[in-house]
Amino acid sequence: MKNIKNLIFIGLLIFLFVEVLIVFPSRLEHEDDKAVRERIAKQEALKKLNNGKEPEPSSTLAEQRMGGVHLVESQQGLRDWELFATSAEGSQNAGNWKLHEVRVLFYNKEKVEFTVTGDTGTIDAKSKDLSIIGNVTTRSENGYSFQTPSVYYSSVKRQIESPEEVTMKGPKDTTGEGMLLKGRRMLVTVDDSKMFIKENVVAKKPMKEGKSFEVAADGAEFSGKSREAKFLGKVRMTYDNMRLEGPEASFLYSSGAAMLSSVAVKGGVKVSDADKFATAENVNLDLLANKYVFKGRPKIIQNNDELSGEEIVFLDGGKKVKIEKVRAKMENKKR
């Protein structure tokens, strides 16, 4: 009987030993393997995005979410850009990723300044530089929209560039539709919220009553903080049968209002219409008062008469002329 009890006791010990060593770990593995696999997959994804290296605990590089990709890059404790894509595929050896259906938010002092969308993109895991290709639109927070085939972002310079053709549409205002522009070579500087078109600028600004400004220039500059637009280089502009030429022209808006109030041309300006020709250092087209002011050695030739003074003002859209502080007498001259 004693031997039988010993055998039963030994059998129970063997059963408990097998349960602990084999069955219980199996149950644990069954319950936790999903979480383990997810954690390993996430670590591998971060390693790939971090150029094959183990991610540091403080890394801001990103989070991959179900149904899409979400990346955040920071500089000096502030967000640089935030990227969303429907999917990503990459090479650990190459150190970059290809993204699909991309949207990138570019930040300046923790505020979104520009948003870029496009068909595909790439990210360099080492430099954090970006490229976006295909149906690319760059939008400023104040309503400017730029279409280009592609853009490239330098993380060091914090600049968005496109060397290709660009089409821009400006925000609407109370004087008409937004400005329409075509040009080449776009540059966006995120830190000071400026947008530049470097070459071959041709623009049109519709106005009320069927009028419009048409501008050709070497380059153009726009602000993401205000509606002011500036044209640079050899500026040629027409407005209501009047032609203006000069090295710089600025479209200025009333303070606190979405209203184009004036256009200032400076640096040596030539103005002409059907029956007169004028020159001055600076010309201001006051659209609200419907008058044009010439300053800086202004001179006007009309009907063979040459007029000059300290200031010449065209009133009623150029139908009347007023001369302030006349310095030279009117003379009749034959051409």
Rank of each mutant, 00 (worst) to 15 (best):
F146R: 00
S155A: 14
T167M: 06
V201Q: 04
M168G: 04
D218E: 10
T175D: 10
I197C: 00
M207N: 11
L180D: 14
T189N: 12
Y152L: 14
R185I: 15
V202Q: 15
T148C: 00
A216D: 13
A216E: 15
K205N: 01
G210F: 04
Y153H: 08
D218W: 06
K204H: 13
S193E: 11
Y152P: 10
L181C: 09
V156M: 10
S145L: 02
S162D: 08
S162H: 09
K204Y: 10
P206W: 00
T189L: 11
G183R: 01
K182D: 06
Y144A: 06
P171A: 02
T175M: 12
G219V: 09
P171K: 01
G183N: 01
D192W: 13
V201N: 03
K194W: 08
Y144K: 09
I160Y: 01
D173C: 03
M207I: 09
Q147F: 08
R184I: 14
V188K: 03
K169M: 00
K204R: 15
I197R: 00
F196M: 06
S193W: 05
T174C: 05
G176L: 07
I160R: 03
V156T: 12
K169H: 03
A203Q: 00
L187N: 13
K169Q: 03
S155T: 14
G210M: 03
V201R: 04
M168D: 04
S154G: 09
K194E: 07
K182E: 05
S155Q: 13
S150E: 10
M186D: 14
P149H: 13
K169G: 00
V215F: 12
Y152M: 13
S154E: 08
S154R: 08
E199C: 06
K172Q: 06
P171G: 01
K211M: 07
R158V: 01
K172G: 05
S145G: 03
S145F: 00
V190D: 02
V188F: 04
A216Q: 15
G143C: 00
E164N: 09
E214P: 11
D173K: 05
N200S: 14
R184D: 15
K169I: 01
K198R: 13
G170I: 03
S162I: 06
E199M: 08
V156D: 13
V215M: 12
K204Q: 15
T167S: 07
D218G: 12
M195I: 09
E161W: 07
T189F: 10
K208Y: 06
K208I: 12
K198G: 11
P149I: 11
R185H: 14
D173G: 04
K211E: 10
Y153R: 07
R184Y: 15
I197S: 00
P171Q: 02
G178C: 09
S154T: 08
E177Y: 10
V202G: 11
G143Q: 01
D192E: 12
G219W: 08
P171T: 02
S155R: 12
K182L: 05
A217C: 05
K205E: 01
V215I: 14
R184Q: 14
V215P: 14
V190C: 02
E214A: 13
S150G: 05
R158A: 02
E209W: 07
